[in-house]
Design a protein around this nucleic acid. Structure first.
Lengths: 116, 116
DNA sequence: TTATCGAGTTACCTGAAGGAAACCTGGTCA
DNA sequence: TGACCAGGTTTCCTTCAGGTAACTCGATAA
């Protein structure tokens, strides 16, 4: 007798495609790092580059554009010369920080387990 | 006068590479979906395939192997015939669920904002 | 007038990850 | 004896995200 495919016994499951869609908010190389870097306050383009040394200008630029479009961060041009640009988390973007913190916590403990 | 690169004024910053390392725990196509699917209890290979229709057997297999290696889930062979295999979140893996939930929550609100 | 700066673009190239489809294995039941 | 099952592997092919490096732009300061 073939095994029956069980219904997943969850109360009211947000669809997996919902998850996919939401995870896309932090997708792309270094996206999480950018959010992480902004968690303590606004940063300028070149500051982010030094925060995340391996990121290239191209990818940082792409990622910042995307994250702004997604509503995670805001871009603020300062009228200095040369103009400097500050990036900051939006309110909603800020709510991603605890989630990232949770992942870091688990990741850290997994590492402990592997090494300890 | 060139702008000074500000120190990021965070209390005790876990390094960005720490974040990178931890994010890697849920990296790879559909990894988050697999964890998400397991949050309500153990699932078999083919159940996961129907939970996540677009995933291919190859990628699911790869992902399950990786996630097991990372300590996120456990693999349990049932001595039925043909043998069936149950995957379940480990305790640490389970702790990723609230993080994913947080991301879903924000993603959902961002979507509301876009559409509403 | 030339260099510097911040903040990006542009062009080009590459490799690793992922998709599709076929195949495998050992047991069972019809 | 042949088909079916679960749970994968293997092969092959493609693509596109990301890396490198050079370039842009307008203003200023040396």
């Amino acid at each position: 007798m073939p095994l029956k495919v069980r219904k997943n016994q969850s109360p009211e499951p947000p669809q997996p495609c919902m998850l996919t869609h939401c995870m896309a908010v932090i997708s792309g190389a270094w996206a999480a790092n950018v959010i992480w870097s902004l968690r303590a306050g606004p940063r300028r383009f070149n500051e982010l580059r030094t925060d995340i040394p391996p990121i290239s200008a191209k990818v940082l630029s792409t990622r910042l554009t995307e994250l702004e479009e997604r509503g995670v961060l805001s871009r603020n041009v300062q009228p200095t010369s040369p103009p400097s640009v500050e990036y900051a988390l939006t309110e909603l973007g800020g709510e991603l920080v605890p989630a990232l913190e949770a992942i870091v916590k688990v990741g850290h403990r997994l590492k402990m387990r592997d090494e300890g």
